[in-house]
């Protein structure tokens, strides 16, 4: 009885998890006319693609670090407020607005006649093209990821036993020592999950590079989209995809939380 009902789920697992990934791996060994080849891998390991991968990693790293530097204090501040859930909700609400709408807003804000340049002008600075630059790419990505980073960090800070913090003060630790030697180590699990949900998507954001970075930032995601939908070279696209999956597995293993590894 129960076995029969599980059939759609197992079918889902085979058709939508195992098959697509296997097909992608298979395609990565195909050239454009369908012959088996290692050429895609040779091309990926050539200088152009390696440079692009390093670039993509660099941007994902910057985005993750900046997001973390903003989100950690933010989560800390919220965890000390009286109406925590209310303020957390305030931070979460923007995630329910479609990511494309938020990106689109930045086209207006950072544009040459946008509000940022208007402010620059009134304080006597010259107008600069902020849009279509790596600055725009990083700003929008950080903006998008902040709530996703705040949530797990808040949860782990909120779960810390308050007695430990009181004990730390009683034993003469300063505020800074308590933060760095008690609170931070105890909230590391939240930081790890925050890094997971920021770093991997940051490697693959292709619509941001198209809309606000003016194609100046080429991420692994942009390369996949380009190969699949514009060049129609599915083999090369799949090869980049296979590498993205490998990087993803690596990041997951590196930031594995305690709960999962038990």
């Amino acid at each position: 009885m129960k076995r029969v009902l599980a059939i759609p789920y197992l079918l889902w697992m085979v058709v939508f998890v195992i098959l697509p990934i296997s097909f992608m791996i298979y395609y990565s060994f195909n050239d454009m006319s369908g012959n088996l080849t290692l050429q895609n891998y040779a091309e990926f390991l050539s200088s152009n693609y390696l440079k692009m991968t390093l670039n993509s990693f660099w941007y994902a790293f910057l985005i993750t670090v900046i997001t973390l530097l903003i989100s950690y204090p933010l989560a800390l501040v919220i965890s000390r407020l009286k109406h925590k859930t209310f303020w957390l909700l305030i931070i979460i609400i923007p995630t329910w607005i479609n990511i494309l709408l938020k990106t689109y807003a930045f086209i207006g804000i950072l544009g040459i006649n946008g509000v940022v340049n208007t402010i620059f002008e009134t304080i006597g600075l010259t107008q600069i093209q902020l849009l279509f630059s790596d600055f725009a790419f990083i700003t929008v990505a950080v903006y998008i990821f902040i709530p996703f980073m705040v949530l797990p960090i808040f949860n782990s800070i909120n779960g810390i036993n308050k007695n430990l913090i009181s004990a730390s003060y009683d034993l003469g630790a300063s505020k800074w020592e308590t933060l760095t030697r008690v609170i931070f180590p105890l909230s590391l699990e939240g930081v790890k999950s925050g890094i997971q949900i920021t770093f991997i998507p940051a490697l693959s954001l292709f619509m941001l590079s198209r809309l606000v970075a003016g194609n100046k930032v080429v991420t692994l995601g942009t390369a996949i989209e380009q190969q699949f939908l514009i060049n129609e070279n599915w083999g090369m696209g799949s090869t980049v995809g296979v590498f993205l999956i490998l990087f993803m597995v690596f990041v997951m293993l590196a930031t594995r939380t305690k709960k999962e590894s038990v």
Binding site: P20, M24, G221, I224, G241, I245
Partner: peptide, 17 residues
């Protein structure tokens, strides 16, 4: 797997499928 996979990977692999 599909929860942690980047959207681009899900999209591209489903396109192949």
């Amino acid at each position: 797997v599909l929860i942690v996979s980047p959207d681009v990977i899900i999209g591209a692999s489903l396109l192949i499928l």
